[in-house]
Design a protein around this nucleic acid. Structure first.
Lengths: 206, 206
DNA sequence: TCGTGTGAACGAATTCACAGCG
DNA sequence: CGCTGTGAATTCGTTCACACGA
């Protein structure tokens, strides 16, 4: 199979959201041009992206919203419910936990961990915050697929090593560090400072 | 001047962080190879990135950590203190507000807004949460340069329009929508669902 | 000698442009 | 006619490889 660029995957995710909106608005069918306009790309880009995975459209007509929704879900692996752990129950962890949109999209939080004894044992929406030490066992028991890391920068690599050793294959890292993970482990970073600095660069007169 | 790619700017941000770490560890000098290794790129990439802005290194020696720190700060526009507004005082807004690392890096939060009357008037670390309606005035009074949008998806575009009209030139958007902003306004998006879907794609057997 | 700075080569991603089908 | 699907052309970003200076 062809190599799929990361940006193509991001755009597919975006198309998925646009399709859901179109669906909610009652659209039966949508063209690459419409998707492009709403997504801030070009129609050629949309068609190229989709053609990496097959021919889903009808010439002269566009794409069936329903069918394309299904296809993209399939491509992205969103039919299954992913089992997610949240590591770090601080302010950010709490904000992420209560962002219930994840659930709606098939990312089910099965466990929350924290190293602070005062947080351990408290209940978050039906889930008990586990101690650090139970991480390995719980990750295995719950068959966690991916983890969201919302821990301080200086703990992030250690935690990452442990969850990878426990069999977790995907990490979404919010700590401002560049984690080292073995090949075969998928890693995404969300780095707010970096984004702000990007804005700074853009606004900086040059 | 040459065109600078977004990825180059992201890497500069990253180098900046690596340099701060090297500095904290007492390094006087650093080579492109060392930066590359710690940043997960190649030495050629590091040199190309830096050479977009000048010749900062010494052949046979590497770069002076101090000097390069200064240069990159200058390039990214981080000498000045940026005036930032936080729009949306929910869980996420609160998490972002209390992430005091921003201050340390020159992003100073001057105002917090929320539409919930129960939040308006409460004090956050010496800052009073302002009502929605005061946004225009306060943004101008405080000469806000950039805004962090942590509002629900369905409010995001409206809010964006208002803050742009009020003269804000940069937006960091956390809502899962593709905002339309006029040319000349810098926009960055943080979209957690999209990142999770990226992980889903990567982990999905194909 | 070592590591930078950079043109040249390469590869990846986007855009063009059009044939073909509904 | 309208819109897809796709090779070809182009643009953009990365990697190579080496001359040069400290």
């Amino acid at each position: 199979m062809k190599k799929i660029s990361e940006s193509a995957v991001r755009r597919l995710s975006l198309y998925l959201r646009l399709l859901q909106e179109a669906d909610a608005a009652g659209a039966e069918t949508i063209s690459s041009g419409q998707l492009a306009e709403r997504g801030g790309t070009t129609s050629a880009q949309v068609r190229k992206d989709l053609s990496l995975f097959g021919s889903f459209g009808k010439r002269g007509l566009g794409y069936s919203v329903q069918e394309l929704l299904g296809r993209i879900r399939e491509i992205l692996g969103l039919q299954k419910t992913w089992r997610v752990a949240l590591v770090g129950a601080g302010k950010l962890g709490s904000a992420l936990f209560s962002y219930r949109d994840f659930e709606a999209r098939g990312f089910h939080i099965r466990a929350v961990f924290d190293s602070d004894p005062r947080k351990v044992g408290t209940t978050w929406g039906g889930l008990t915050v586990c101690a650090d030490e139970e991480m390995e066992r719980t990750l295995a028991d719950e068959q966690v697929d991916m983890a969201i890391l919302a821990v301080p920068a200086d703990a992030a690599q250690q935690v990452a090593d442990r969850i990878v050793a426990a069999g977790v294959r995907g990490i979404l890292n919010f700590a401002p560090v560049r984690l080292k993970v073995p090949r075969g482990v998928a890693l995404k970073n969300v780095d707010v400072t970096l984004e702000l600095e990007g804005l700074s660069f853009a606004l900086n007169p040059r």
